[in-house]
Write a protein that binds this DNA or RNA. Sequence first.
DNA 1: TTGAAAGCGCTAACAT
DNA 2: ATGTTAGCGCTTTCAA
Lengths: 327, 327
Amino acid sequence: MANIQEVARKAGVSVATVSRVINNYSGVTERTRQKVEKVIEELNYEPSMLGRNLRTLESKLILVLIPSISNPFYTEIINGIEETAINLGYNILLCETDSNPEHEQRYFGLLKKRMADGIISMDPAVNKAKLAELAESYPIVQCSEYDEDINIPYVTINNELAAYQAVKHLVKLGHEKVALISSDERYLYARERKCGYERALNEFGITANEAFIYHTESISFEYGQHAMRKLLDLKDRPTAVFALSDILAIGALKEINSSGLLVPKDIALIGFDKISFSNMTYPALTTVAQPMFKMGAAATNMLINRIKGMRVESMVMEHELIIREST
Amino acid sequence: MANIQEVARKAGVSVATVSRVINNYSGVTERTRQKVEKVIEELNYEPSMLGRNLRTLESKLILVLIPSISNPFYTEIINGIEETAINLGYNILLCETDSNPEHEQRYFGLLKKRMADGIISMDPAVNKAKLAELAESYPIVQCSEYDEDINIPYVTINNELAAYQAVKHLVKLGHEKVALISSDERYLYARERKCGYERALNEFGITANEAFIYHTESISFEYGQHAMRKLLDLKDRPTAVFALSDILAIGALKEINSSGLLVPKDIALIGFDKISFSNMTYPALTTVAQPMFKMGAAATNMLINRIKGMRVESMVMEHELIIREST
DNA sequence: TTGAAAGCGCTAACAT
DNA sequence: ATGTTAGCGCTTTCAA
């Protein structure tokens, strides 16, 4: 494993010149450059990031905090983050918090130990206070899930409007008995989407029926099934359901099918997120698409700008209602 | 951001002693240790991985090569890798190759540039020749997908036996017309599973019908749909289908449902992998479970042992047929 | 038990 | 246009 010294010696130049060549700096004659490049080739020299990183005091690594890697909601965002990061010379460290404060703490430690240059947080359960404190010393941006109260830039969509449009779509289809399968209202997106749901109903003079609003304890599939079971057990059951996420909607769908009812004939169903599986169900889910890839890309650009010391502005991106077979 | 020098000065000791304390070395008096720890606390000192990594010539990072992060097949393996890596003081860099040689090349470069200490390859489309060459200089292990011809340790399951058992299950249920939805036979697992399929049929005196074997071009959902369409269009159509992966099976399931047929009444269906979504379909898929988490953990232990210079042995782990609603 | 000092591989300020 | 040199923050050898 050759190092910069050996290259310099063998090429008959100084290490500074070799450094200039490998970093493509100007001010090296073509002749010298070629001489150095030839030796680099011969020795199979690869510059060590370890030396460079210590010298420049950066790791070229970005932490991406997500609750769980198995949640397909994050995959497209991660793709957006990754592509952008790579283009800008960074790599990403995917950090699963499992909504566990200890794991979170461990990843924060990685930042303090200079193992990473910044954080993109997508974890709705993150400790906002700790994140805010950390943000005073380190570059951090929030993506998708965010908290307005803490002073950390974010990229998100208008959840209230998206939910409003989804429910309006159901109402326009003739549904008056529209249920909501919501998750924990500790999360901002849940509160916002519920507002949109209520606004749509109010606008059409429909009184929101409390029995039609179900809060799940967790966002996993089984809880969608369970919620739907409860809604189907009502003497006066809903004719349409808006689920806060595709995963919950897919759980609901399975429960509806198991009851021998048909979607959308007996019950219309809308999800949220447009995860890839929302297209694989029978019938395919109507859902709300977030511009995942772009959101990830934007968050990454923001973070890297912060790393470089620039100020950045939060942004709200456009969503889209995707009407498919389930409504 | 305090460094080790400041801590040493403020504590009135040498940097060597501070280093001993932060690394929990013996041979430091309790009095000295406490003095140093007090100063570390006061200065909020966090040792820099950058300095340590250069000094020890390691990055404490492991590359995990997967074709795509959106394939749920990998999530549990990754969890196993991650947990084990963290326990041993490593972090993982998830690398999506998209089966693109350029991306692959880029990740190999990360290893050469000392940005990572080793590779766990799970990419069936990886360039085996390049991987083998790299393995001569760097620690590498293969997980799940492997190539016996190159001298790189691997952890896998007995794919032939698993497929044999799955198909045998179908035959015992009375099915004689069992179709196979296979993927590209360039991949070892596809060839092995096909062997198992044929062995099971042969054992029961059933002649494999060439028309019942369909090779998809890609492993995504839509190709499962398409394959099933072709199988349904046969004048003499199969009564059972063994798909090489759950994703293909889920595509097949959607196509069967769309045709107004019922699973398992009209057609029985088996997948492979036990991805989380295989339980969310209606009906839930019968499938073959690989011990994903354990495989990831084992691969990681093997890799880290290699990094430490030890020799390691390949291993074959146990699978399990999970009988659910679709058969 | 503790300290002094070298050095990991690189970049960049400064000198020529 | 090129070279000399200091030093990023740490670990580790050797000496005391």
